[in-house]
Design a binder for these strands. Structure first.
Length: 451
RNA sequence: GGAGGAGUGGCCGAGUGGUUGAAGGCAACGGUCUUGAAAACCGUCGCACUCGAAAGGGUGCCGGGGGUUCGAAUCCCUCCUCCUCCA
């Protein structure tokens, strides 16, 4: 870490790449950009034209202004050589004063134009990768693979919101008393199971080349902008009151990706891989009425996140291996799941391609997302200015890295999956073998005494 | 909570109003030399925007923002970050 990078503190609109999509691409090939965005939706396509027009205007002024500046600079050069007491000096100074004012007002107009162009460009989402299926809604998503057998039961499997409280390891009612809706208290073996999962996941990813990181849970606005949560999705975030504004992280992706913000990484070191456990906080704005039962959709949950910084050439191969690393958690736990490639309409704003891992929840007779693995290509890196110098070519200019991340996995949802998939007729739960060593050898969860 | 100090290119570090995009050093790269390497010597070596088919121009950038001035890395204000000391 250099002192420069540590202390860099520029205005977000300057420090962070000013826009997310490659502005040159939009200007040079607007039609190609539009046709790629059509895989998402009409709104994305419509965002291109206004940004394009604003950029043309900006460029015209830029050119004109640069000429004025050149003129002023040349005149200024003259001033240096003139005798300060001569009448020429005074005359020239007056002329320069006017020129200077002219430049200044041009600079103001340019700043305004840049701002409006940037704002418009920030409405343009990332281009979907060519392999992304077109269409909108969950029905257009494509199932890539399915792992394991869907378990069968000689009784009617229960949902975790019944099993958990019956076993005395989950308390929704008291959680609501303390914190309101969308919070859950885990108790006894439930709490231990959650903790065991965190450790198991971190150890697993650690053994597969991810460096473990324990990041801050509160971050500055710049960090949220860097990973794309802001400015568009401010309503989804919790933030602190008062003059020291900080945001509660919605995912460890935010601090971990921003860890290398404003840096030029050594190409030799890529790929750089991290795994991080953290609590996550989401306001879940706009999800009223969705998943109101159980702990599927909470304001606070825990997650182990895996993050990669890679070269553009390797990012799609790295996406496959990242997905496989996330899948490995489910495989070792023996949980039945499937892999889905998200269609353009379901793709996140910053993502070029996303796989969801969906675990089977027999209590709900449904597959539910337990991990989302995405390649953001240079979209986040451009905003956060994360670059690298290609290995073996020290003269090469710095290039933007590609960033990827995925849940590995969402811990609460894994608890749910274990409870639902490994339930027995008597209501007890089998603990998967890899977790037992993290739970003092406990093999089953049975009804616990509670107040 | 109070008082000071600091932030310059990939890194270190000069520079207190004009010829400074910025000395010097390190690292890196090209070359000379060498059987090869090292050392030595010579040369190259920031990022971005913009004009141009290209060659090559122009402009901006010395933590961020604003101000003074004909002109700011340099003076003033403010914010951020780090360091030291005091309570």
């Amino acid at each position: 870490m250099t002192r420069h990078a540590l202390h860099a503190n520029r205005n977000p609109s300057q420090a962070l790449g000013k826009q997310m999509i490659d502005p040159h691409l939009v200007t040079a090939q607007p039609e190609a950009v539009k046709s790629r965005l059509a895989i998402r939706n009409a709104e994305a396509v419509a965002a291109v034209e206004p940004a394009l027009r604003a950029d043309v205007e900006r460029r015209e002024l830029q050119t004109a202004l640069d000429q004025q500046r050149a003129e002023r600079n040349a005149a200024n050069d003259l001033m240096r050589k003139l005798d300060k007491k001569s009448p020429e000096f005074a005359a020239n100074r007056d002329r320069l004063r006017a020129l200077s004012d002219q430049v200044k007002s041009g600079e103001e107009r340019l700043a305004a134009l840049e701002l409006s162009r940037d704002t418009l460009l920030q409405n343009v989402p990332n281009l979907p990768h060519e392999s992304v299926p077109a269409g909108g809604g969950e029905t257009a998503n494509v199932v890539i693979s399915t792992w394991g057998e869907r378990p069968s039961y000689d009784f009617t499997p229960k949902a975790h919101w019944d099993l958990g409280p019956e076993l005395g390891i989950m308390d929704f009612e008291r959680a609501a008393k303390i914190s309101g809706a969308r919070f859950t208290v885990l108790l006894g073996a439930g709490s231990r199971l959650s903790r065991a999962l965190a450790q198991f996941m971190l150890d697993l990813h650690g053994s597969r080349g991810y460096r473990e990181m324990n990041p801050p849970y509160l971050v500055r606005r710049e960090a949220m902008i860097g990973t794309g949560q802001l400015p568009k999705f401010e309503d989804d975030a919790f933030k602190t009151m008062g003059e020291n504004e900080l945001f509660l992280i919605p995912t460890a992706e935010v601090p971990v990706t921003n860890y290398h913000r404003d840096e030029i990484l050594d190409g030799e070191r890529l790929p750089i891989k991290y795994c991080a456990y953290s609590a996550c906080f989401r306001a879940e704005a706009g999800s009223a009425g969705k998943d109101t039962r159980g702990l599927i959709r909470q304001h606070q949950f825990e997650k182990v996140e895996i993050v990669k910084f890679v070269t553009p050439e390797t990012s799609y191969a790295e996406l496959e291996s990242l997905r496989s690393d996330a899948e490995e958690v489910l495989r070792q736990l023996g949980l039945h799941y499937r892999v889905v490639a998200l269609c353009g309409g379901d793709l996140g704003f910053c993502s070029a391609k996303t796989y969801d891992l969906e675990v089977w929840l027999p209590g709900q007779d449904a597959y539910r997302e337990i991990s989302s693995c995405s390649n953001f290509e240079a979209f986040q890196a451009r905003r956060a200015q994360i670059r690298y110098r290609p290995a073996g070519d020290p003269k090469a200019r710095p290039r933007l890295v590609h960033t990827l991340n995925g849940s590995g996995l969402a811990i609460g949802r894994t608890v749910v999956a274990i409870i639902e998939q490994f339930q027995r007729a008597d209501g007890s739960i089998d603990i998967p073998a890899p977790l037992q060593r993290y739970m003092n050898g406990q093999t089953r969860i049975t009804r616990e005494g509670s107040a």
